[in-house]
């Protein structure tokens, strides 16, 4: 299983955890990936996740390309929305599906475009289990590995400010798709923001559960692909309106 090199391994972080079992979280962890038209990358993302985890659930949000086939071929369980609903809706569907799985202990939300590092997810799971915290948020601003560029930095920092003001939590990053959520925490929230505003909503609702949470430094791999897929600055206007008008 370990013979194949892990593509995202850049900083040699895997070396430190190489002594421990790379599949230590495989049994009780469900990876939840909202999937929408990511045909070219989803296969690789799922295949690499499969080296560490047994349970990978992709929620296809009405893709019009070959995303479903690519994800299934790589070994993911693919649930299909009949129509496009949005990333928040896909996450909520994933949470509700995992709720029906008796062995599910933890959920990891992961982006389909390959900008998250699996090693970060593994370390976040280690932290969640060691310190018994219910929620671990990934943050790209806890160290200087990630350089999003100044426009994106300003937009993201504004989003962080808005999120902290509305949620009462003190996070350093918002709209980071990598999160570890214990199953009981996930079952206590219902996301109603179908589109991108869910990223603020999820912090708000998890915060309200009063369960212990942490932030964990992660690196985001801004590849040309993920940049081209990334949210435009204008979309932050949509997020604000979605949050204000219900």
């Amino acid at each position: 299983m370990r013979a194949q090199p892990i593509l995202f391994c850049k900083n040699g972080l895997m070396d430190s955890s190489a002594q421990v079992d790379p599949r230590r979280h495989s049994r009780d962890t469900w990876i939840v990936i909202p999937l929408y038209n990511e045909e070219s990358v989803i296969g690789r993302v799922v295949a690499e996740l499969r080296e560490h985890f047994d349970h990978i659930v992709c929620i296809d949000d009405g893709s019009t390309d070959g995303s479903i086939a690519a994800a299934e071929a790589a070994g993911a369980r693919v649930l299909r929305h009949p129509v496009n609903l949005g990333q928040g809706a896909a996450l909520q569907t994933g949470f509700e599906y995992v709720r029906t799985q008796p062995d599910a202990g933890y959920i990891v939300t992961f982006d389909a475009d390959g900008q998250h590092r699996i090693e970060d997810a593994m370390l976040m799971l280690d932290l969640a289990k060691r310190d018994d915290v219910a929620i671990v948020f990934g943050s790209r601003f806890l160290d200087d590995r990630t350089n999003p560029g100044w426009v994106k930095r300003v937009v993201l920092k504004t989003a962080v400010w808005v999120t902290n003001r509305t949620t009462g939590l003190q996070l350093t990053d918002a709209h980071n798709g990598l999160r570890v959520i214990r199953a009981d925490a996930a079952s206590r929230i219902t996301l109603e923001q179908d589109r991108m505003a869910h990223a603020t909503e999820i912090v708000l609702k998890l915060g309200r559960t009063g369960l212990p949470w942490r932030e964990f430094p992660v690196e985001l791999l801004y590849t040309d692909y993920s940049k081209s897929k990334g949210q435009s600055v204008l979309n932050s206007v949509n997020i604000l309106v979605d949050l204000l008008v219900k």
Binding site: L79, R80, V83, L85, A89, Q92, T93, T100, V245, K246
Partner: peptide, 25 residues
């Protein structure tokens, strides 16, 4: 109209999610 749209979308989401989960089951 905007508010009615938001509520309508919410209903569609619930419906679609039920279909998705029923099919998965």
């Amino acid at each position: 109209t905007y508010r009615r749209n938001v509520q309508l979308n919410r209903r569609i989401t619930h419906l679609a999610r039920e279909i998705t989960l029923a099919r998965a089951e």
